[in-house]
Design a protein around this nucleic acid. Structure first.
Lengths: 256, 256
DNA sequence: TAGTGGTCTAGACCACTCC
DNA sequence: GAGTGGTCTAGACCACTAC
């Protein structure tokens, strides 16, 4: 490309750069191939490194590139589709293949989650503010092709799993499985899902092998039982490598 | 906050800044209020403007802030939930309330869309490569509370709407409505949906009142009819202001 | 015209990975 | 230790909005 000069309404340099590099990725590079380093690329295009980085950041956001500190910038494979459909209502399962329970502890949920668990914000019978009531927090990881693609925290009020207290008090992974098992016995009356853009918290970022603040797709699910919100799941998916799919093909079978 | 010193494993400044500002937004600002300008904020926190901007960018990505050139930075209202559920299969409708048809033209679809329309990549009977066959491209806008939240291009192969050619050849909005009407008469056998992160193309950005490259949620829908993919919709939603909801509450009615 | 956010530069140093 | 991407600085100018 030699059209760097004479832009009548000059688009930003980083935007133009992004286009040029994107086309080069299509025609001259294979998946997994490593690009020249940022200083070399900046020199080649005659821009400051910060400007080049702005273009690379966009391409990484779009899932075209993958950058790793100390290693380099590589051409990313196409995003993997991960199924998050709600065709059949079901509780998070304990012995599931896609999700793996990692840990569980009792904790006070963040305010946003507390609002979902208890929209009216009513106090507990004892007068304790509902928002400050601790809940079980089950942490799970979702893998796909050996890669971690999502980290979830599942918030379960103790009231939703009353028989759990009787079964002693195992810790960590054992407790996680116990909570998931206890949920299975409840009648699931409906669920509710939302997807939005977020940035990875430090702990989720670590489990997803990303830096804190990396862009993620946050999937929030409410599970309804007994006329109440019995559990809330907040799952963060790597936005760079994932495409969330809602399979809903009806009576037709599609190859792909 | 005075814990700027003595970080044993110092987190990045912009990350710390983001946290501090985020807490300030919760406690000291109202929705719609304008913040001090970037130069003033950078001076107040003792960082370079670029560092401050990194924090603001993250907060904008999370939907906490809204920045407009020439105006300032304001506290954003909570994200609006927009329903994209597929509970009942249905074609995009012509006289719908949420979507408004804007335009229509015949064009060659981008390669990614061509692959969805024709997974086998088979040639047309005449020998013309299928990927180069033009399709109707209907552009629609989705508004919510007077704000444009999404821009869509709906790709409809001429083969999907055979009776359309007979009805003359209106232009623009008229053609758009004609294509949508013609789709209604087809039996819809299923649909398929995916959500991923993208950055706004220049034309979509203009219609969404954002800068090119702004983060968007891209919702791709395939409509199946007659054993084929009869149409493909690519809708880009403003990621900063939107939360995509998949209402699927079953037999339960939830307030909120 | 003044003030805002958006772009860009040319440096510097740090954290990390790999050899 | 060499090389990578990540963070940060202190400037500059531009495009846009509002008065």
């Amino acid at each position: 490309m030699g059209t760097t000069q004479l832009e009548p309404v000059p688009e930003p340099k980083y935007w133009h750069l992004k286009t040029v590099i994107s086309e080069a990725l299509d025609s001259e590079f294979e998946v997994g191939e490593i690009l020249p380093n940022e200083r070399a690329l900046a020199a080649r295009f005659g821009v400051a490194r910060a400007t080049l980085r702005q273009a690379l950041e966009q391409l990484e956001l779009e899932g075209r590139l993958q950058r790793r500190r100390g290693v380099g910038t590589t051409v990313a494979p196409p995003r993997v589709g991960v199924d998050v459909s709600t065709a059949r209502h079901h509780w998070p399962a304990a012995g599931e293949d896609t999700w793996q329970a990692v840990d569980c502890a009792a904790a006070v949920p963040p305010a946003a989650v507390a609002r979902l668990l208890d929209p009216e914000g009513e106090d507990a019978p004892g007068g304790e503010p509902a928002a400050a009531r601790p809940v079980y927090v089950v942490r799970r990881l979702r893998a796909s092709n050996g890669q971690s693609v999502a980290a979830e925290q599942l918030y379960v009020p103790a009231a939703s799993v009353p028989d759990l207290a009787a079964s002693g008090d195992p810790a960590g992974q054992g407790l996680a499985r116990g909570v998931l098992r206890a949920l299975q016995s409840l009648p699931l009356e409906g669920q509710d899902r939302a997807v939005e853009l977020g940035s990875a918290r430090a702990d989720d970022a670590r489990e997803l092998d990303r830096l804190p603040g990396a862009p993620v797709l946050v999937v929030t699910t409410r599970y309804f039982s007994g006329g109440r919100t019995a559990a809330v799941s907040v799952a963060t998916y790597r936005a760079d490598t994932c495409r969330l799919t809602f399979g809903d093909v009806g009576d037709l079978q599609i190859a792909s």
